[in-house]
Simulated scan of single mutants.
Amino acid sequence: MSSAGADIAGPPTGSVPRKRRRVPFWDNARYVCIVLVVLGHAIQRLIYDSDIAFAFYLALYAFHMPAFAIISGYFSKSGSPTKTQMARVITDIILPYVIFETLWTLTKWLVEGQADPNLTRPSWTLWFLLALGIFRLVLPYLALLRWPLLWTIVISVGVGYLPNIDSTFSLSRTLGLLPFFALGWWLREHDIVDRFRLLDFRPWWLRAGAVAIFAAIGWAAWNWLPVWQAIDLRHWLFYEDSYADLGGEQWWAGGVRILLMLLAVILSAAFFCLVPRGAHWWTTFGQYTMYVFLLHSFVLYPFRESGILRDLEPTWIWLPLVTILSVVIALALATKPVRRVFRPLVEPRPGWLFTDPELASKEGRRNDPTGSRRPR
């Protein structure tokens, strides 16, 4: 592993433990992923009027959330949770979810004049917060099983046949994406990245191959766009609806999900090949992806609902502009002033909630659910 971002190996017996250094690659990957999340939501209104935007949208959704789930799994622990880790599920996931779901209810009431308070139905982006919570809760049990990856694939494919597993508590999407989270954990559990020096061995032909893969998926998304629109591929990529709801009543419909999962893994691998390994001025923003994730939807809400992003022509101007805007939003929401203002909402410290108040603030500032504060 390169010295610029390598973890420090464990100290010799009897020596003073040294703090592990952060690996810039992972912060870079997190930040690029959150930019893609913002971008995917920003261009959604463009896809109704632009075939190019639609093709770009399909290529993006084919891998960006699976890649985020892989990163989250890589930084998750499968051992029996400690009291502090159990408290973090409450403080890092449940409380922010309740807080932001309440804010969304108030926003819809103030702007639209109506609201339907329902904590079982996550608003817009909050589904992934619930998914991370469920991932963390089930991981210790998955780790007890033989072939955990295989079981998660069976679960993901199987839930598509069950119409009663829907968006309540984001369960359908959570179980659909579970294999990617488990894959990230498996890579860490078996030390695949370090054993095979995947962050070191990146020759030009590997990067060229990654670019070729994205070029191929972009060409396929654009060239066969009428086919993808006809089969409603967009919603297949959400891992949310049952096969029957997507028009896939056939017994082999689960095979489509398997192909999409395989495609997502290939594209995620290509994505990781292209993520810079070294530290850059924007690398540190990868530690604050939860702020971007929870706040960006409020920034985009006026653009989405006002219709300002509809009928924007020519696409070759507006699509790059929206892309640049997404990067700026992701940067701005990770800055220190924004974090200082919104920390009570994004990272609440409710000592009053626990019998042991220290559980709300142990080990300094806690990791967010994606593990972005961990050094490795």
Rank of each mutant, 00 (worst) to 15 (best):
G113S: 06
S242T: 02
W26L: 13
D166A: 11
S170V: 06
A143I: 14
Y31M: 10
L39T: 04
T91G: 02
V341Q: 00
F169I: 10
W147T: 01
L206S: 09
Y243G: 03
T152Q: 04
L312P: 14
G286Q: 05
L139C: 07
F181E: 06
R277W: 12
V346H: 01
W124V: 06
F298W: 05
R277C: 01
P357S: 05
V341N: 00
Y31A: 01
F128R: 06
A330T: 09
Q114G: 08
R207F: 10
L300S: 05
S2Q: 15
A29I: 04
P337N: 05
A6E: 14
K108S: 06
A55T: 08
E101Q: 15
R173K: 09
F298A: 04
K336E: 13
P302W: 13
R304M: 11
L171V: 03
A9I: 13
A29S: 03
A221R: 10
L294K: 01
G209K: 08
L333F: 03
F75V: 12
I134D: 11
Q229T: 01
M86R: 13
A182S: 12
S50K: 06
W127A: 10
P24Q: 02
F25I: 02
N28Q: 09
N118G: 04
W236F: 15
L198R: 01
I90A: 14
I329M: 11
R195L: 10
H280S: 13
W219Q: 01
E363P: 00
R195W: 07
A212Q: 03
V193S: 00
P11W: 13
A332N: 05
L246D: 08
E112S: 14
V193G: 04
I8V: 12
F181R: 07
L319W: 11
V16Q: 09
P226H: 07
V265A: 10
F271R: 12
V328C: 15
V159T: 12
L183P: 03
F169D: 12
S76W: 07
G10H: 12
D356M: 08
A360V: 07
A210N: 00
G133E: 06
P276Q: 02
G160M: 10
W316Y: 14
I47M: 08
V37E: 12
K362C: 08
A334F: 00
P357M: 09
G351E: 10
Y141F: 15
V35G: 08
V38F: 11
V227L: 15
P375Y: 03
R343H: 00
L262Q: 06
F298H: 04
